[in-house]
Amino acid sequence: MAGKGMKSLSEALRGLSLAAQPSRTLPTRQASVVCRRAMATAIDTKPANITRSVTEPWDPITSVPLTIYSFPSLEPRSLESWSPKHLHLPLRRDILHLAVVYEGDKTRQGTASSKTRWEVHGSHRKIRPQKGSGRARAGTRQSPLYRGGGKSHGPKPRDFSTKLNRKVYDLAWRTALSYRYRRGELIVTEDGMELPLPDDFLQLAEAGVLGRELEDSFVCKYVAELMTALQWDKNHGRTTFITGDRRPNLFTGLDIAGENGRALELEDVDVKDLLETGRIVIERSALREMIKEHSSDLISRVAVKGLSNKPTLGQVLVR
């Protein structure tokens, strides 16, 4: 309240000052002449393939392209073709919600604990005689009614984890990836993604002339600038990097410049991580592994003409 009052007071003082603008009227947004033009940049909102005539045959897409980039130059290096069941699933918010809640439950520590009246230390001697004192009858001092007594129905360590069918959870993984893919926020890089640090800095660090403070502040600035140049920085919603194992420069650099992004090893990633931050930058093999590990719902026992319809992992189109 006080803060708000101060704000409006200072606002008023500013308004009354001589330097105040002549007109302090609330600006009304009426589309100006410039903005009223038909924007050549507007996206046509008509979605494709929503309705079709019964006479038209149903012709869904059978594969989606996936470009593999180099990092950090972002040069397209190869092209792969993936099944839409892997990277182009429809968005199911409900399934994503189930998965995120499931993960949240599973990661609850569940160690809250309090003592019942039977666990509180002390003698169980009757505090005072049952009758004659003129006061309420009282048993032991561990009674929950007393200060210092036990806690009735208090928390005890327990497992909060809930269950989710594996096939639903795996679908959630690929739904999250598909969501990123469709929004253009899934950037797949070549294997061995690592933050390139300039050679002169590395030599200086090796010679030990900089010291830890200078080294770290250098890397912090360097990473921040690199991310800004790529438009991956905090103003663009941060970036999650996913690699197969720990890469020293990338992980240390993003630890230091954590406001601009985070780096995760594949085994530390969960669905919620895929849905956070502005974009996901993932190694090719890490993505393959991730999809391979999470496709239990695609396995079918039904084989048509001896062939199962399980989609294969990405095929290289252009190398």
Partner: peptide, 29 residues
Amino acid sequence: LSGWWDEPTHWGSEGGVAGYVHSATSRFG
């Protein structure tokens, strides 16, 4: 030394940190 790299001249190039990063990393674009 906390603000050492905030000084553009310490990066040794015209554009400060931006110029340094631009010259140190290859950009395909």
